[in-house]
Amino acid sequence: MRLDLAHIQRWIEPGSRVLDLGCGDGEFLELLREQRQVRGTGLEIDEHKITTAISRGLNIVEQDMDRGLGNFPDRSFDTVVMAHALQAVHYPDRVLEEMLRIGRQCIVTFPNFGHWRCRVHLGTRGRMPVSKFMPYHWYDTPNIHFCTVKDFEALCTDKGIRILARDVVGSPAREPLLAGAWPNLFATTAIYHITR
């Protein structure tokens, strides 16, 4: 279980309706079904992950978020989750707006490009960072809209999005305190619980 997913769980009410955008192979929805008895639906476009998720007995809709979410009615889910996909969509701001329309509350996680390693990588080598967590090159990465913790919070302010809670995952593990104190420098993954 990815650390960010373990963090998210506690914000999900038992028995609620959850829409997971970019649900992958359904690992998280399966966990939520078992631990939180949620009624879940996942959106995914990767063929193999869809098949795995279906074999887990999950409801999966093959749909590309970049082509809109207009088929989901207003307030049709209690929580809309998007884990590590914000940076991969064409219009992150529009997807956020749609999430907040569909769900009463939303949970978003993304890799923090403001992490000190990224800064050092770019600052000292002058090259786009490539690491264990961001293993792609600039030209083949699906991550086309990297942002930092500060960037995201600025967007929330602009859009009138309320941040209910913020959590961070630091790296290495000895940095949780640092990540809590200076998230924009020390968080590898930022986790936001938001609403409108």
Binding site: I50, V61, E62
Partner: peptide, 14 residues
């Protein structure tokens, strides 16, 4: 699929 989603019915689509 969209009608099923709007009707709040469990649906899987590929």
């Amino acid at each position: 699929v969209d009608a099923l989603i709007a009707a709040d019915k469990p649906v899987t689509y590929t």
